[in-house]
């Protein structure tokens, strides 16, 4: 695969969009710490991915997925997070990608899994700075631009709309009935986090369904679980928990359909 072909691939689109987020957010904040975190996260993720692939005796070693995982981790973890915690989070993410597998595909979104576990394991602070949460509100337009380009490329509009539509509707209902802190979730930096999550994490092709019906069910489930966790506990982990619930649904659905095909064949 040439560089030109790669850049037009889904992973190429996501990598370019995330790298752009890293640069824009760093320039906007006049802070190079995020770039340092990004370089460390990508380097550690790629190294861990190569080591895991060698141990697993994989024929094809292409750590472009690890670059994406490293970038997402760096953009979500606060820029003040120590480099040790950034590296440790990336290692957990890559280990989940290689150890928690079904039919050679990761079960859980590696970045979401690593970031979720990094809270209880490393007490990591997550600011979603790469979603422009600390920049002026108009920068959300840049996030939408990059996000729509990626979603269009990976063909995940049904999933995106099902998730965002359901999530925002549930927040609206929470606001109407004064349940939880819907006001915060609808405003920066939390709305930026939800958009970043929906564009770049939820739509990960290996860990989410391809067919329209599956995408819609996946998006709705992730939104309902995310909103429920937010309403009950607040915090910042609600999106990851929603995504992991969706990942489990995807796994169970794939297993059930395989079982049906097997029974038909028998």
């Amino acid at each position: 695969m040439t560089a030109g072909q790669w850049i037009k691939s889904p992973k190429g689109y996501v990598t370019v969009a995330l790298a752009a987020c890293l640069l824009i957010a760093s320039i906007g904040a006049f802070d190079a710490k995020g770039i340092i975190n990004g370089v460390v996260a990508v380097a550690v993720s790629v190294a861990a991915d190569i080591v895991c692939a060698l141990i697993g005796k994989r024929k094809r070693i292409m750590p472009d997925g690890a670059v994406i995982t490293g970038l997402i981790n760096a953009l979500v973890l606060s820029v003040t997070t120590s480099l040790f915690i950034v590296a440790a989070t990336c290692i957990v993410s890559i280990l989940s990608k290689h150890l928690l597998v079904a039919k050679k595909k990761p079960v859980f979104n590696p970045a979401a899994f690593g970031l979720l576990l990094s809270v209880p394991l490393f007490h990591s602070g997550q600011s979603w700075w790469g979603a422009f949460g600390d920049l002026p509100a108009w920068t959300i337009a840049l996030l939408l631009l990059g996000g729509y380009a990626v979603v269009n490329r990976v063909n995940k509009y049904p999933q995106l709309f099902a998730f965002i539509g359901t999530f925002l509707f549930l927040l609206f209902m929470m606001g109407c009935f004064h349940v939880g802190d819907a006001a915060d979730a609808l405003r920066p930096p939390f709305i930026n986090a939800a958009l970043f999550f929906a564009f770049f994490m939820l739509t990960d092709p290996p860990t989410s369904p391809a067919k329209t019906g599956g995408q819609i069910a996946f998006g709705i489930l992730a939104a309902v679980v995310s909103a429920a966790v937010y309403a009950c506990f607040g915090g910042l982990m609600y999106l990851f928990i929603g995504l992991l619930a969706g990942n489990l649904y995807h796994l169970l659905k794939a297993r059930l359909s395989t079982g049906k095909e097997y029974r038909r064949g028998a």
């Binding site: 925002l168 606001g175 802190d181 819907a182 609808l186 405003r187």
Partner: peptide
Amino acid sequence: GYVTTETE
């Protein structure tokens, strides 16, 4: 949702 939660 934004308008509903404006006072909060």
